[in-house]
Design a protein around this nucleic acid. Sequence first.
DNA 1: TAGATTGTTAATCGATTAACAATC
DNA 2: TAGATTGTTAATCGATTAACAATC
Lengths: 208, 208
Amino acid sequence: MEKLTIPEKTVERLPLYLRRSEELYSQGSESATSQKFVKDLPGISSAILRKDLSYFGNYGKKGTGYEIPKLIGRLREILKLHVETKVILVGAGNLGTALLTNSEFDHWGFEITSAFDSDPDVIGEEIGGVRVQSSQDLEQVIQIEGTKMAMLAVPANNAQSVTDSIVSAGIRGILNFTPILLEVPEEITVKRVDIMSKLKELNYHLDT
Amino acid sequence: MEKLTIPEKTVERLPLYLRRSEELYSQGSESATSQKFVKDLPGISSAILRKDLSYFGNYGKKGTGYEIPKLIGRLREILKLHVETKVILVGAGNLGTALLTNSEFDHWGFEITSAFDSDPDVIGEEIGGVRVQSSQDLEQVIQIEGTKMAMLAVPANNAQSVTDSIVSAGIRGILNFTPILLEVPEEITVKRVDIMSKLKELNYHLDT
DNA sequence: TAGATTGTTAATCGATTAACAATC
DNA sequence: TAGATTGTTAATCGATTAACAATC
């Protein structure tokens, strides 16, 4: 069977399409043309929207456009939002607390199953419905739960050692909120949330 | 005078190069070849590093590579880290607090000059050396300070109205931490910190 | 000098856009 | 049917890579 590979750029745009669909729907639109759809999505043309969607099937109606509720359903399927993916959080400081109390995870098919911290004052606290556990139990809990994804919101100086530990316990994907460039085996995927780089790009654009 | 435009992708990689340079330096390296430099920078080849750097001048030495301290200095110049750029923060909740107590801003040439919130319990508090002001004073403070950049860490339902207000007060670049797709005039630049999209991409890679 | 690596050119690759036949 | 827009092809554009002359 031939496996069609979806371009990386397309994968990156899909969540944006879902957000935009939900926005249009909440504004009362039942359908939208590709033109109307990409209005206010900077850098995305109607042609690219049509091409991106066409990788997954024929969702539009020639002459009229796309039915929003149907599109939302399809995008939620493609993005597998009906399956709950377990994620752990390491580091329950201010940022960790913001993540634990963020209601978006649920909407996007994620469940933060456990949170960890090394501060005795924080261990045992319940934040956003999750009880914070000791970092000492990290590896054990990952192995028991079988969790494959982790968010890393610890201080920079702990980032690499925590990474080594969660990777050896079975974590395969890491969302890294620290400024550290983590070293991991090549089969492990790391994505960074890099605020400073984003700010610098913004700054660069304002100057240009 | 001809203005050489730097590719967007190159601009995005520069902060990463600075981080990697500082990492190498802190590990005791005084110099590095392009090969050694891009080790552990996934998706970046030595050729692309050399090409990116060559847009700004000849920083390497043929036969030996790049001198790290010199490279750090050059990158800090290119990225204009010697100039302090003023940024305001709107929303001093958990995420806002994490930003206010993040020491990276200073290192990257940013100063959070003011923070705003609408919660009376938070207004007047000092967080990370910045006193939280009332959102009612937002426009006035922006105009007096002449700030051009803002970070938006407010609840989703306030995001668009706060945006309208800061844009009318003179803000030209926004780093958006909310899930809302902001509508702004086309001369205003918005960048998003989109955690759910990053998690979804990560998730997609683990499945594939 | 001999060995090594940069800076740069030309070739390749992939993604975006323009354009239009198919069709609702 | 007439008008409009999708889905898709071919052309364009831009970014990455391979390769090597220049040179430290």
